[in-house]
Design a protein around this nucleic acid. Structure first.
Length: 282
DNA sequence: ACAATATCCTGCGAGC
DNA sequence: TGCTCGCAGGATATTG
């Protein structure tokens, strides 16, 4: 499930691999996920050159030299593979999770950007670059979890305004903090020693401070590992991230806490699972 | 106005 | 063996 570290990994790799390349063709077998339509997508992207890549929340933005941008959301099982004449036969691309290719953008030099997405929740959209920030799902984004402007003061302000809900729910809300998903909400709360069911407003000054620094720390650490690939995520080389090797609690219910050995537990928060240590977190 | 739930998808593992 | 069922989840739409 691509969250901030996974999406940032993809954006950084794309910057290295496709900037400067000119789009030759666009193919899709699942045009439902292509916005506003496959025809419009082709019209505004074919012939244009990639000038940059960036991340907004969990969105990937690929800026073109024709005043248009491609906006891609990987949702849960989406990932982008960049295949060149040199690496096309690499075994990593043979991974079963890399076989759900629904869209392919081909560049003039033969390089392909392939969008694999088992569950088909992901989408891609072409939009004038000046309108990217007004795209509904981007316009509504809260502060980026790794933004330098995300300070304790701002965190306090958020909690005052939106803090009536459980902290586990608040962390998932992209309109409040952008970039955290189900994995990192459990991990950051574990790092900070806070139970996911705590009402956000009830967090003490110290807990707020601990949670904020845990968010930054865990996300940056995950980024070093190219994200986490418990199931489906793959980077643009088709390779797994490695963060699951250092995970604390996510997906480990019934197993011992890495800090104290207590059996980790799982609860439903909304529709989603949240994992925690009943002893380390309070 | 806010918060909780249903929806989109597919593959996988559990249970019968 | 082969079926059904529940589960996984990001963000939007809908309901409460």
């Amino acid at each position: 499930m691509p969250e901030l570290p996974e999406v940032q990994t993809v954006v950084s790799q794309l910057k290295e691999k496709i900037v400067g390349k000119k789009i030759k063709t666009v193919w899709s077998e699942w045009s439902k996920a292509v916005r506003p339509s496959l025809v419009a997508f082709k019209k505004h992207s074919i012939g244009a050159r990639v000038v940059g890549t960036r991340r907004m929340g969990k969105h990937i933005i690929i800026d073109l030299d024709n005043q248009y941008s491609l906006v891609i959301h990987l949702k849960m099982t989406g990932h982008l593979l960049v295949k060149t004449d040199e690496n096309r036969e690499n075994t990593s691309f043979q991974d079963p999770y890399n076989q759900y290719i629904h869209h392919i953008i081909t560049f003039m030099d033969g390089t392909t950007l392939e969008f694999s997405d088992m569950r088909k929740f992901g989408w891609m959209e072409v939009i004038p670059t000046v309108e990217v920030e007004s795209l509904a799902s981007i316009a509504s984004l809260g502060i980026d979890a790794l933004s330098e402007k995300f300070t304790l003061k701002l965190f306090d302000k958020m909690l005052e305004k939106k803090g009536k809900i459980k902290i586990g729910g608040l962390l998932l809300n992209q309109e409040i903090i952008a970039g955290i998903g189900n994995i990192y909400r459990s991990e950051t709360l574990f790092q900070a020693g806070i139970l996911p069911e705590r009402i956000a407003l009830s967090l003490s000054k110290n807990e707020r401070k601990d949670l904020l620094s845990s968010i930054k720390k865990v996300l940056k650490e995950a980024l070093k590992y190219r994200g986490m690939s418990d199931g489906d995520f793959r980077d643009t080389n088709g390779e797994e991230g490695l963060f699951q090797k250092v995970l604390g609690v996510y997906g480990r219910n019934g197993k011992p806490c890495p800090k104290c050995g207590t059996i980790l537990r799982r609860i439903k928060l909304g529709q989603r699972s949240a994992f925690f240590c009943p002893l380390c977190q309070s």
